[in-house]
Design a protein around this nucleic acid. Structure first.
Lengths: 236, 236
DNA sequence: TCCAATGAACTTGCATACTAGTAAACAAGT
DNA sequence: ACTTGTTTACTAGTATGCAAGTTCATTGGA
């Protein structure tokens, strides 16, 4: 079975960059499922490169908790660890609730246009059934808000911990009514930010980022095989 | 000149583990200064191993922002980027202010003994002029507080961003009166936590974690060569 | 004296060969 | 049938060699 169905490297950049992104996406979207074996040689052969760059990518993914490397045994896609998911949510909520607060205190006229653009992009993506596009516009909006708070670099840190959350998100293949509810949350956040109401913005962001809990509730039952660790962990 | 003055690998574990810790410590403590060149071959030869494991360690340190790898040119110790330092402080303050809040709400009887132990360990280390021991006990106390909040894993994330802060801390070689002030801050935090006063605990923690700003003030002037980036960045 | 060309000595990126360890299939004995 | 020992085929860890690019000192000419 092909690990990388039809991945073609452009080879303008170093190998690792693209391979990292490609593998990461396949793990997050569930194309590579928890428990699946994935060997350095296999991937190297499929790409027509040597083990060395593949190996380095594996290491990075293992550091992020997406791969599990067992020496002399093999490398496997990590199970989704509930503890790690809850911790990731905690970190994201803590950081973004503070940054959105700052964003709402610093908001200016031109921010309004940009933020509203994100909302229209998102509704349009939903209308067209373009899930990938929606996720991208979603991330872009969060990125912009963090930038407004003057902390653009923090998004890359959140990106790191968010991996665990995204695995859950993709596993759930959000249905239509869910997306509508997310849009409502987005609108509430943006409205509060543009109104300069820090308290309301923080509250709206918290509700938004905590909605992943409901997704977990539904999933941890049905997709039990992909999860690891006890349920009922630290919940606020 | 020796990069690794007298580092002896135990070779019970994989090479990388120890080498990573050894290099990281030398960068943080300033034994390896910003701008210093450090090549894969040189380190490999000094350790009597091949380039491959050294290379992987370099990659991880580069991901953390401690090394700068320029292809076909060389690898260098990163300058201390003020922007990264302030961002790290922001992340740490945001996370630990929330966790110490939770810790103070969950505190129990046996926590009191442990926390007081940390304080005595610290005062003893200061009395003996044992700086390394003080830093260790300092970190241990923060670790314990985060554990009290039920989020032990978050410490490793903070550990990651803390690297930038530690570089500043070690560069300043805190003088005696500074250490006394830190101890006062520690005592204030612990007292608030044990009293179950979340607001006071959070405030004390914020003051404590913001004290690095004064250190930066003093240093960015005198040690200008080690720093990169404009002063007067986002400050609360 | 100045400047440009050149080449030696570096560097990291990548490829490949070898080592050593695990696991599972299999064979032989009970 | 079951256990035990052995073989075989895999894995990642490590070593090493080559390729490609940068830096810098040296050299030759004006």
């Amino acid at each position: 079975m092909n690990i990388l169905a039809g991945v073609q490297l452009a080879r303008n950049e170093p190998i690792g960059r693209e391979l990292y992104a490609a593998l990461r996406e396949r793990i997050l979207t569930g194309a590579l499922k928890p428990g699946d074996a994935i060997s350095e040689i296999q991937v190297a052969d499929e790409l027509g490169v040597s083990r060395t760059p593949v190996r380095e990518v594996f290491r990075r993914l293992a550091d992020e908790g997406l791969l599990r490397i067992l020496p002399q045994v093999g490398t496997f896609i990590s199970p989704i660890q509930l503890r790690a998911v809850y911790d990731s949510q905690f970190v994201r909520e803590t950081l973004e609730c503070r940054t959105v607060r700052i964003a709402s205190e610093r908001q200016t006229r031109q921010d309004a246009d940009r933020l509203e653009d994100f909302l229209t992009l998102q509704t349009r993506a939903i209308r067209d059934g373009n899930l990938a596009g929606f996720f991208r516009a979603d991330d872009d909006m969060h990125t912009y808000l963090i930038g407004m708070a003057g902390r653009p670099a923090i998004w890359s840190l959140i990106q790191g911990v968010k991996a665990q959350l995204d695995r859950v998100r993709f596993l759930s293949l959000e249905s239509g009514e869910w997306l509508d509810r997310i849009m409502e949350q987005h609108r509430a956040i943006i409205a509060a930010v543009l109104a300069g109401d820090a308290d309301k913005a923080e509250a709206a962001m918290r509700i938004h980022l905590q909605s992943v809990f409901q997704t977990i509730e539904r999933l941890a039952e049905t997709q039990k095989a992909f999860f690891e660790g006890e349920r009922d962990l630290v919940r606020p």
